[in-house]
């Protein structure tokens, strides 16, 4: 069960503001985590508490394919991102690397900054503990559930290679 404070963001949060291009030659996730949302709010990293949750409006993660965007959020301790929709490359990357994301229509208007949020990753039930409202996230297609279940795409691919090997 995920339980934390809400960090509220608007719509069209792009990957350049999640992690600026100038840091994209850094591979160490912990180093990247020091610069999360730097151009949007330089105080974010100092204030963010590990285990807290981002609730954003539509099209979160638009722009570049940089995988360091979900990677630095995960490294910064973001427990989950909840939004009405995600840009498709960010969505793939999050599933592939194991950053929990949840899609719920119009969700942003039901959460305010620093309200308390609880997420059951197994069922996709999301509650605003401050208001008592609760929401059901769209279920992931079966194939994506397999990737999530395997712990990410790398593990899934390892299983596939193992499987292919057994067929020989």
């Amino acid at each position: 069960m995920i339980k934390g404070s809400v960090w509220k963001f608007g719509r069209d949060i792009d990957t350049d503001v999640i992690i600026a291009g100038r840091y994209c030659n850094i591979s160490d996730p912990d180093e990247l985590a020091k610069h999360v949302f730097e151009d949007l709010d330089p105080t974010f990293v100092g204030r963010f508490v590990q285990g807290d949750v981002i609730v954003a409006d539509a099209n979160f993660g638009c722009g570049s394919s940089r995988e360091v965007a979900p990677l630095c959020l995960k490294a910064a301790g973001v427990a989950a991102v909840v939004a009405p929709s995600f840009a498709r490359i960010f969505y793939r990357n999050a599933i592939n690397i194991g950053l929990p994301i949840f899609e719920i229509p119009s969700v942003a208007k039901f959460f305010e900054q620093r309200q308390s949020i609880q997420i059951d990753p197994g069922t996709g039930m999301i509650s605003n503990l401050s208001t008592g409202a609760s929401f059901q996230a769209a279920p992931f297609p079966e194939f994506m559930q397999k990737i999530i279940g395997a712990g990410g795409l790398v593990n899934y691919a390892s299983e596939r290679i193992g499987g292919l090997g057994n067929e020989k």
Partner: peptide
């Protein structure tokens, strides 16, 4: 279409993409 680095790595290994 554009993808992230993990998709690239898995395509390098398997020659396929979901």
């Amino acid at each position: 279409t554009g993808v992230g680095s993990t998709d690239v790595a898995v395509a390098w290994a398997l020659g396929e993409v979901w």
